[in-house]
């Protein structure tokens, strides 16, 4: 569907269960997902922009879909900084919108976003990046329950050698917050948090608080025979051995 919309240079919004992609002339100009902090959170969390400045930009330029332009023209933000932050947020939300099991997609022609175009991205690039990111997460740690479940520390303790960004994530793990909550608290793209959480899971420091319940009548699935080694199994064995 996205390729067809790109080919016909469509403008509008593509809605799925985990968020919305906004297209203009067949290119992606914005993306939003409830799983990721919005641009407002990313820009105001670290004090780059005050909530008042953000509010003013929305009121003044929102109706004309020129909020991005407004922030630059008013001198709140250099163009480069806005592009970096906006592109980061776009790919971040697109990862969740285009994720597997995101349900059917609905496209509404003509719908524009108040942000306006900052730096449009080809549909192909967004799709390639989304699947590359999925692979990247699986290479770090193959189980995805830490992506969505509340997180808990295993009691292994925060190693003093933990990188600063990972430590910031680990310190917010309290048995209640999910990766998305932590991203919002830090004002950091959600995918960045997923990467750190998977690293912490691989190190045995953090795990999902609630394992997804297994359906009682789920049929037992026999492993398929494959020439490729089962990386997930090997990693679990390696971790178990190291924990001895």
């Amino acid at each position: 569907m996205l390729h067809r919309l790109a080919a016909e240079k469509a403008t509008g919004s593509l809605m799925r269960e985990r968020g919305t992609l906004y297209l203009s002339d067949g290119q992606v100009i914005h993306a939003e997902s409830p799983d990721t902090p919005g641009l407002d959170v990313l820009l105001t969390a670290g004090g780059a922009l005050s909530p008042e400045q953000w509010g003013e930009a929305l009121t003044e330029a929102g109706p004309q879909q020129l909020v991005g332009r407004f922030l630059v023209d008013r001198g709140h933000f250099p163009e480069g900084a806005l592009e970096l932050c906006h592109l980061g947020a776009l790919y971040d939300a697109a990862f969740f919108v285009l994720g597997r099991g995101g349900g059917p997609a609905r496209f509404r022609y003509g719908v524009a976003h108040w942000m306006g175009a900052v730096r449009p991205v080809p549909v192909d690039a967004v799709q390639r990046e989304t699947s590359r990111r999925r692979e990247m997460l699986n290479e770090i740690w193959p189980e995805d329950d830490t992506d969505t479940q509340p997180l808990v520390q295993t009691g292994l303790g925060l190693d003093t050698g933990l990188p600063r960004r990972q430590r910031a994530v680990a310190e917010l793990v309290d048995g209640v917050r999910t990766a998305a909550d932590i991203s919002r608290a830090l004002g950091r793209p959600a995918f960045h948090t997923l990467v750190d959480v998977r690293r912490l899971a691989a190190a045995g420091i953090v795990t999902a608080a609630r394992r997804p319940p297994r359906a009682a009548n789920a049929p037992t699935r026999l492993p398929e025979t494959s020439a490729a080694p089962d990386v997930s199994l090997l990693r679990r064995i390696k971790n178990a051995l190291e924990a001895l």
Binding site: L42, G46, G47, A48, A81, G88, G187, P189, H192
Partner: peptide, 9 residues
């Protein structure tokens, strides 16, 4: 690159 928002660029 050092930015005024959280990033790793």
């Amino acid at each position: 690159v050092r930015t005024t928002f959280d990033s790793s660029v």
